[in-house]
């Protein structure tokens, strides 16, 4: 087998909000279509199954230089990842990610949030970020930051009722995501304040 084909380089992980992607630089071969194949290896495979590798069939012989590995990175352990190139019968060596990837390092962004005042009711709309996510919502009467209340929202279903409001003062809300399986939270979203009685949503 002719291994002159260079192995893919610059292999790296893009991981945001528990969505994990493996990317690499394209292998350039004049006038040819290069395809790539990706494999992963969990800690279990390293320690108990003779360091075996498992192919990701959705990323077998693909022309793109990115592979969605989210489905396979489904435990909080250190994973190895590798990719190789093929052109016709020619095949490169494996290019391996430098260092391991553990989903605990995913970057978590604050949730998109919209606060609504409906009569005397304080409501919030939260972006659905997938089953791994819960939301920690803080709300308080403006000026009474010391008396913040919180609600842990596990099921995101459109408009969620937080509490009732007295007429007059502003009520402020901010939220962060919480991912139980890695026991980490995002930073808080921007604070939004509204007022009862036809209160308008005001960004502060």
């Amino acid at each position: 087998e002719d291994a002159l084909l260079p192995a893919p380089q610059n292999i790296s992980i893009l991981s945001t909000n528990m969505k994990h992607f493996l990317t690499w630089s394209p292998v350039m071969v004049q006038g040819e279509t290069v395809t790539y194949s990706v494999e992963f290896q969990g800690e279990y495979e390293r320690e108990h199954v003779n360091e075996s590798w498992i192919p990701i069939c959705e990323c077998s012989r693909i022309t793109a230089t990115v592979c969605n590995i989210t489905e396979d990175i489904s435990a909080t352990v250190a994973y190895n990842l590798r990719v190789r190139a093929d052109v016709g019968a020619r095949r490169s060596e494996w290019g391996t990610l430098k260092g391991f990837f553990n989903r605990i390092t995913t970057s978590l962004t604050p949730p998109l949030m919209k606060v609504i005042a409906d009569g005397y009711h304080l409501l919030v709309e939260l972006q659905d970020m997938g089953p791994a996510f819960q939301f920690y919502v803080l709300y308080w009467k403006k000026g009474q930051e010391s008396r913040m209340q919180h609600k842990l929202v596990k099921e995101v279903s459109s408009v969620i009722h937080l509490d009732t409001m007295e007429a007059g003062p502003d009520y402020c809300v901010k939220a962060q995501t919480y991912v139980e399986v890695i026991n980490r939270s995002s930073s808080f979203s921007q604070t939004q304040c509204v007022r009862a009685q036809g209160g308008r949503s005001m960004w502060l």
């Binding site: 992963f40 969990g42 279990y44 498992i54 990701i56 396979d72 489904s74 435990a75």
Partner: peptide, 17 residues
């Protein structure tokens, strides 16, 4: 079946942690 093997890997790695 590669799909089955990948799911077994996922369970095994969760068991490991």
């Amino acid at each position: 079946d590669s799909y089955i093997n990948r799911k077994i890997s996922s369970i095994a790695n969760s068991f490991l942690s």
